[in-house]
Measured scan of single mutants.
Amino acid sequence: PEEVRRLVEELYRKGVSPEQVKKILKKQGIDEREIEKVLRRIG
């Protein structure tokens, strides 16, 4: 979803590592598979 992409990109631009991005967003209840999809697209 758009909102997940925005959150991931925001953290990524701040220099947060992909592993940390995953941890942070998982705590917020976001599906890990969604996060990984976005990270793959960015990375």
Rank of each mutant, 00 (worst) to 15 (best):
E34M: 10
K22Y: 08
V38M: 10
E2C: 05
K23S: 14
E10T: 06
R41F: 10
V21G: 01
V8Q: 00
G29E: 03
I35T: 03
E10R: 06
E2N: 10
Q20D: 14
I42N: 04
I42L: 15
G29I: 01
V4C: 03
V21F: 02
K27P: 06
R13G: 11
E32I: 07
E3Y: 11
R40P: 08
V8G: 01
R33G: 12
I35R: 00
Q28I: 13
V4H: 02
G15E: 03
E32M: 06
V21A: 08
K14W: 06
G15Q: 04
L11T: 01
V16W: 11
G43R: 09
R6P: 02
G43E: 15
Y12W: 10
Q28T: 09
P18L: 12
R6I: 09
I35V: 09
R6M: 09
P1K: 09
S17Y: 07
E34V: 13
Y12E: 05
Q28V: 12
V38T: 06
Q20F: 09
E2W: 05
L7A: 07
Q20Y: 07
Q20H: 11
R5M: 12
E32F: 02
E3Q: 11
R40V: 13
I24G: 01
E10H: 07
Q20N: 13
Q20V: 12
K23E: 15
K23W: 05
E3R: 08
L7K: 09
V4T: 08
R5T: 12
R5L: 12
Y12S: 08
K23P: 04
K22H: 09
R40N: 15
Q28R: 12
K37T: 06
Q28K: 12
R40L: 08
E9Y: 05
K26N: 07
R33V: 11
R41S: 15
P1L: 14
K27M: 14
V16T: 10
P18M: 12
I35Q: 01
V38H: 13
I30S: 01
G29F: 03
S17M: 09
E32K: 05
K37P: 06
K22G: 05
E2M: 10
K22E: 07
G15S: 04
K27R: 13
K23F: 04
E19S: 11
R5W: 09
V4L: 15
V4R: 03
E10L: 07
V38A: 14
E32L: 05
G29K: 03
I42H: 07
G29S: 04
E34A: 08
E3I: 10
K22L: 13
L7I: 09
P18W: 09
L25H: 00
D31W: 02
R41A: 15
V38G: 05
K27N: 14
L25Y: 00
E2L: 10
K14L: 11
K23D: 15
K37G: 08
R6S: 08
E32G: 06
I35Y: 03
I30T: 02
R13K: 13
V21R: 00
R5I: 11
